[in-house]
Amino acid sequence: MLVMGEVHTGLLQNSGEVAASTCRRLLGLLAGQTVRVSRRPIVHAVSPDRLTGVDCRLPSASQSRVRGVGTVLTRCSITGGRVVQGSSYVRIVRAAVDRRLPWSHYLARPGVMEVLGKAKPRDLSDGFTDDLPGDRLSGASAGRTRPDPARPDPARGDRGPGWSGSAPLDLGAISGRFVDLVQSSPLLDRRAPFKIPRTRLRWVAESASESGAPAIRFTLHNDQLRTLRLVHDGEFTPAVAELCEDLALHDWLLTTLLVIVERALTGGAPGPEAVAKLTPAVDHLLHLWMPAARVDETLTPLWESLERYPGFTRQWQSLVDRIRDQISVNMLTLLIRKGGW
């Protein structure tokens, strides 16, 4: 029917870049399985997938009470030893029968949530991307849900037809908790070079066979919250989720750079102080920009359409140029003042 996901992206709480081997240990905390590390074109480590059992209401634009049961798939990643992401998604499908089945049924379908009863995909996707209680500010107060158990809880299996769960699915809570897990590792010194909020990207993907031509729409809601709606060719594959993670990563980089430039260059005359505030960006961020580095070929047209509008790389490049110009001008000023020129 459709796929919903939420990616949280933040600065890894460490003073410097973290080595690939440390990334492996950081992400290995999540499970006994191996952490995948790729080194080209940038070091990228991904934890094994983890499942969270959920039995809750699905978001619905018409406020219908739609119940879904299944498992949410979550993984964490670290890019360039610097940026951490928690990404959760779930494929929503219609259930064959209108009642909850034993957990073994859902465990055999990782990352799938079955909808009991009637539901319109449009209603669900609108509910997920438009009903944003955290829209008031900072993406906070994101709802009252708690898809609590870290693993499916069979004890909840015998909830009968009297089910009255009122908490809607909150993928963000799951993603956020996994990011917390990484950030709280004793392997990190927690002396990050600058303070910066996490961003959250909420996405919905539908197949073109059900919803028309491939398309992508990216919306900024506030400083931290973004939504992405996309229609892709063919069936859903994890590559779609990877595209969203890559977008979330680059949106975070761009957002963060904008904040750093704003902090450095507003409210005062540019000078050594401003340059000192820009330096962390040079040290820790500028080399991380690699749009679509890991995006599947079939999906690159979607990335490219975002590059045309709003033009992520265009804005990034202009900021990078601005930072470098500021630093050069400041260096010249210092040299002239010292009589070295």
């Binding site: 500010l137 900072s138 963000g172 809570a173």
Partner: peptide, 10 residues
């Protein structure tokens, strides 16, 4: 534990 994140006011 009644909500996952507290409200924030700018």
């Amino acid at each position: 534990g009644e909500l996952t994140e507290p409200q924030r006011i700018d």
